[in-house]
Design a protein around this nucleic acid. Structure first.
Lengths: 216, 216
DNA sequence: GATATTATACCAACCGGTTAGTTTAAACTT
DNA sequence: AAGTTTAAACTAACCGGTTGGTATAATATC
């Protein structure tokens, strides 16, 4: 085989392992995952896994960074294209939704890591979170200056948005199970970009938009 | 010892075990928890644990039911005392917040179970959830009829509320860690009843309240 | 150009420690 | 006497990590 293909094949193995690890960790969490299962799904011997990447902890750290590391950039993208604070807020929400649809491993991993107090988040991830709040805070502040939004703590606004999306995504099996038993469980919906994001947009904008005649 | 005390002490052992299990499971999740650790924390021999309750799975089911089983009643309490749909909504939100403060095991266990797709929830728990949405749906519908609220899917509204509270509670260590690095992380806050609930109330009511002159 | 050497990638089998769960015999309680 | 608890040992299975070794191809040596 020529050098280029050889090069490709080398990288492929590590990527296959990381992809399998991402799958299994997001399904079962760190403690519930066995290294053997990851190796099995990657179609690779366990020793190869250790040769290519390292121990379980290292593998997990790689997955966390891969899954949670781009949150800030994803959330901030297209933001400056939006003309008004309202439009920026809409874009922000749509970006969060799109990130979760594009990256379905994020919600379960995020939920489990939050359950653990976020103690396993590498510094790059927490820095990204801080950036996100800072961006949202900027949007709200700009809206307040322009007299179109009311003040609100960005942390809570963000938690409401992310909480709704993350819970919605992970509740898909639950909603499916309950679909027959009455109530509008929005069964069959697994994406949040679309109807769900539109509704969250509407609610958040109603919450933050300054109504005409409202005191400054 | 008299019969009553005897009765008490017998029940006490099982309760001690369940309390320890609740602690450990909520800290480490199902897979991350060892039965020996539960027995150790309960101050009880492992054989006693198996004698009193049963295997790890049974123990976990008991904890889930204990921690998540009263959500519906807790959320619905005091609701009929509220005069208006707006007040009912406020009570609803305050009750969710109070339930999480009173029951600090709920957020981590809920997050982890949602991460697992809610597949371990006993039927009583999912029934309770359905009841909650039905209650919230009733409040909103009443508000719409009285022309004071706008329509919104109760599922999403609930997920926003619960998501914000649950994330806020579990993020306490993270917020503590980030407190020095700038940004308003609301560090030092571990309760959601109070300032956090008040803010969420405000946001949700802004989102759902029909503004004067708004089309029906 | 044939032969050794090295580097890289991979694997089957194994090892040591952990964990869920059981058993037994004795003690304590009512 | 019946029910409850304990200490301690034990097992079978599991799991993270390692070892010893193979295959391949590129590089160096003669």
């Amino acid at each position: 085989m020529d050098p280029v293909s050889a090069q490709n094949r080398r990288g492929d193995t590590a990527l296959k392992i990381l992809a399998a690890a991402r799958d299994v960790f997001s399904e079962r969490g760190f403690a519930g995952t066995t290294v053997d299962e990851i190796a099995r799904r990657a179609g690779v011997n366990k020793a190869t896994l250790y040769y290519q990447i390292g121990d379980k902890q290292t593998l997990y750290a790689g997955v966390i960074l891969d899954v949670m590391g781009n949150a800030a950039e994803a959330t901030a993208s297209d933001l400056q294209d939006a003309p008004s604070p309202e439009e920026k807020l809409r874009t922000y929400i749509r970006n969060v939704a799109a990130a979760m649809d594009r990256n379905p491993w994020m919600p379960p991993i995020m939920l489990r890591e939050m359950a653990a107090g976020g103690r396993n988040f590498p510094e790059a991830v927490t820095r990204g979170m801080a950036q996100i709040f800072s961006i949202l805070g900027g949007i709200i502040a700009e809206g307040v200056r322009q007299d179109v939004l009311v003040a609100a703590p960005p942390l809570l606004v963000h938690l409401m948005i992310v909480g709704a999306f993350a819970f919605f995504k992970t509740s898909a099996p639950l909603r499916e199970r309950q679909a027959g038993a009455g109530g509008n469980w929005l069964a069959g919906e697994d994406r949040v970009s679309g109807a769900v994001a539109t509704e969250v947009e509407r609610l958040v904008l109603r919450a933050l938009r300054k109504t005409p005649g409202e005191a400054g």
